[in-house]
């Protein structure tokens, strides 16, 4: 039990760090909502895993992969049709996920907290965090130029589409890492809220990236403490803490 709690806290903090980084680029790329939709695609996978008794995260990984390919392709088309298609994918995933998930497991799948973290899961999770952090680090210059102007980036022979696809894969992996703690419905929060706070407080790119990761880790750390102390469900507590930090950041005038 003690080992399991230690695994949970350490893995939670590591996942929070990468979620803050991935999210800060999502905000700059203006795809936070498309990203949120990706995270909901984990639900049908979780549901099927509960139904057929295989590891939940394996099921989530499968449907997330499908979601990433779908959204990545839709993102390359612009305009209303792409936006509505992403909206349809979102509601369809939620509905299908809710229908296939056994009722007694639905709350866990939506809000997190299913099962315990094993030693193997812990090691795999940390390796996942390392992969995401390394990908973002290696892609950062390509992404920054792609965000500023895709044409300028392409004129420097940067493969903007490949960088986007790799970014979406890191995004999917980040969702998978947070899924255990936050569930399919709330996992998007760790990608959306910390960058929103950092954007309000930071004035340079470096500050923005560091603050985003830091806020994310603070929310998860405090969330663990509050949820243990007051016996509250972990996922919603973490998101509530993050939202309170965002509310506090509103005190700063832009």
């Amino acid at each position: 039990m003690i080992a399991s709690s230690f695994f949970a806290v350490v893995l939670g903090l590591a996942s929070a760090l990468v979620a803050g980084l991935v999210g800060s680029f999502a905000l700059m790329k203006r795809i936070t909502l498309a990203g949120d939709v990706i995270s909901h695609l984990a639900l049908p996978g979780l549901g099927l895993a509960f139904l057929w008794h295989f590891p939940p995260l394996a099921g989530a990984a499968a449907t997330l992969a499908i979601g990433i390919v779908l959204i990545d392709q839709l993102q390359r088309r612009s305009g209303l049709i792409a936006e509505s298609a992403i909206g349809v994918v979102f509601v369809a995933a939620l509905a299908a996920g809710t229908l296939v998930t056994p009722t007694e497991d639905l709350i866990d799948a939506l809000f997190g907290g299913f099962g315990e973290i094993t030693a193997a899961g812990f090691v795999l999770g940390l390796a996942g965090c390392a992969v995401v952090a390394a990908t973002i680090y290696l892609l950062r210059h390509q992404m920054i130029l792609g965000i500023f102007s895709p044409d300028l980036a392409r004129s420097l022979k940067i493969n903007v589409d490949r960088a986007n696809t790799l970014y979406f894969c890191s995004f999917g992996l980040t969702v998978l890492l947070g899924l255990h703690f936050l569930g399919a419905l709330l996992v998007g929060a760790m990608i959306i809220v910390p960058p929103a706070v950092a954007r309000r407080l930071a004035s340079t790119l470096d500050q923005y990236l560091i603050l985003s990761a830091l806020v994310s880790m603070i929310a998860v750390g405090l969330g663990f403490a509050v949820s243990i102390h007051w016996h509250l469900p972990l996922g919603p507590t973490i998101v509530a803490v993050a939202s309170l930090i965002f509310a506090a950041s509103l005190a700063k005038r832009m």
């Binding site: 390509q142 130029l145 500023f148 954007r199 340079t204 790119l205």
Partner: peptide, 14 residues
């Protein structure tokens, strides 16, 4: 939150 320097650094790196 990108400034001119960030863009130049990124291009220089590429």
């Amino acid at each position: 939150p990108l400034n001119v320097r960030n863009l130049l650094v990124s291009k220089a790196h590429i």
